[in-house]
Design a protein around this nucleic acid. Structure first.
Length: 198
DNA sequence: CCCTGATTCGC
DNA sequence: GCGAATCAGG
């Protein structure tokens, strides 16, 4: 794979959006996060949005915008001054969610989920699974949408419409999108109910 | 352990 | 220019 205009643009866009190098790498495909980081540096857009690393030391805050300086001509770059405008929210649609443990009311205001969210459905869940879920939810890592990765349980907990909403975040079961407990309630064999003899 | 970005350096 | 290996954190 090579850095075509298009790929570079995607890289720039995502980097500006605050996406991590690994996420960008996955999006682009064919490259590792190292490649992405390397490219980012070569492109000279390492520091994202004037992040103020704020050196521990005293007042060493130049803050001198003084841009017109070096950089002869031949530069159609965008100055991108104060990138204060929030760049966060990306087009990822919040997954619909419902309190799995039947913990609370159901709102379902959120449109629809994509591949992520499950929807245990009003289905009945085995008491065992339900119990374990209740328990792990107490130790959930409470990750935000952006903190989810391929190895964090994506089970939604709480009401998406309120601040009391987060994702389980515990280590996922290999190959599954959820942790062991949530896999248990997410993937019901389809008929464990009837004469369940477990 | 998982992850992050930063740097180096052979290619 | 490229990116794996490595470093330095969280």
């Amino acid at each position: 794979m090579s850095w075509t205009e298009e790929r570079v643009e995607t890289l720039k866009r995502m980097w500006a959006e605050g996406q991590s190098a690994s996420q960008i790498a996955k999006e682009l495909g064919g490259v590792t996060r190292n490649a992405v980081i390397g490219k980012v540096h070569r492109l000279g857009l390492s520091n994202r949005a004037g992040a103020a690393p704020a050196a521990a030391s005293p007042a060493a805050k130049p803050a001198a915008p003084a841009p017109a300086k070096d950089k002869p001509a031949a530069r159609a770059e965008e100055p991108a001054p104060a990138a204060e405008t929030a760049p966060p929210a990306e087009p990822v649609k919040p997954a619909a969610a419902e309190a799995p443990a039947g913990a609370s009311a159901r709102k379902q205001i959120v449109p629809a989920g994509q591949p992520l969210p499950p929807q245990p459905s009003a289905n009945e869940i085995s008491p065992e699974a339900l119990a374990s879920v209740r328990e792990i939810e107490k130790s959930a890592k409470k990750l935000s949408l952006m903190e989810l990765t391929e190895r964090t349980c994506k089970w939604p907990i709480g009401d998406p419409a309120t601040p009391d909403f987060w994702f389980c975040g515990l280590p996922v079961q290999p190959g599954k999108p959820y942790c062991e407990a949530h896999v248990g309630v997410a993937f019901q064999p389809m008929s464990s109910r009837r004469d369940r003899k477990r």
